[in-house]
Write a protein that binds this DNA or RNA. Structure first.
Ligand SMILES: [Mn+2]
Ligand SMILES: [Mn+2]
Ligand SMILES: [Zn+2]
Ligand SMILES: [Zn+2]
Lengths: 142, 142
DNA sequence: TCAATATTTTAGAAGAATTCTAAAATATAA
DNA sequence: TTATATTTTAGAATTCTTCTAAAATATTGA
């Protein structure tokens, strides 16, 4: 198998992922999917992703970055992690898990769910359901 | 004891609290301290606090609200809780505790620390210290 | 008490992140 | 291919928050 075939196989997979989300595999979406999903889990902001896309030579506007981050999130390919009141982070890891947040670097790191337990949760407020439980362990360098 | 004496006793306490934070007890600060601390714990945004101050007849600018929320936070009288990427919440409860976040109402509710346990925390990333651990139980109405 | 000094408040401008608008470009379906 | 639906985009708009620098207020200590 040539490098080209491997490449096209990867792209085909990403196109599939995009199609399954009921979205058209445009040049921009494929490029973003490649940056987001091709190589392991990522935690990323819109600005950073935009920078990476431009670096990779993909002409794409910031509005399109936001559009697609939200569409991917709605489709269950991404989730948003709220850790900082000044910017939004998107996470490609959809398994149940928690996070270390490196406050000085503004960086997220996964804590696998099996590695951390939340217990003794009190009764929920009357008439409510759990949407999610987020544990953020905020760390600083020493 | 007259109502006036009770009032001035309360205000004197708040002035003390402000003075201990190395801040001058201005009309605005005393009014904010009254709204924040006089009647039990609160979770509040800058806009809401501003609205309440104006309602209470205190002329105060939004810049002053932000200045004072940050000064009170720096002084350890408040803490910021990050739950929503679009606005900041400030919490008057300085005891260790966690939160329910009512996603539809944008409302925070305390979970007393004793009511919830986080266990099996993995080793911290090399060279880091825990700054805090935040557990947010996101709930929606059903 | 009364300046002198330090701090605070404020209006409005500025900044940063995100969303909106509506027109041009692209993708899909017939 | 042509018609239709979706997507991208530039730039304007919006929202929350911070900054600026001038006026107001609080404190100090003679
Ligand atoms: Mn969003
Ligand atoms: Mn802040
Ligand atoms: Zn993650
Ligand atoms: Zn609280």
């Amino acid at each position: 198998m040539t490098v080209d075939q491997k490449e096209s196989g990867l792209k085909a997979n990403l196109e599939n992922k995009i199609r399954k989300a009921d979205l058209r595999p445009t040049k921009q979406r494929i490029a973003l999917a490649e940056l987001l999903f091709a190589d392991g889990n990522r935690h990323i902001t819109a600005e950073i992703l935009h920078g990476e896309a431009l670096e990779a030579g993909v002409r794409i506007s910031l509005a399109t970055i936001y559009n697609n981050l939200h569409q991917f999130t709605a489709a269950g390919l991404l989730r948003e992690v709220v850790v900082d009141s000044t910017k939004s982070y998107f996470d490609t890891n959809m398994d149940p898990h928690h996070h270390f947040f490196h406050e000085d670097k503004g960086m997220l790191e996964d804590i696998h769910s099996s590695k951390l337990e939340v217990s003794n949760l009190p009764d929920l407020p009357e008439g409510t359901n759990i949407a999610s439980i987020d544990v953020i362990v905020r760390v600083t360098s020493n």
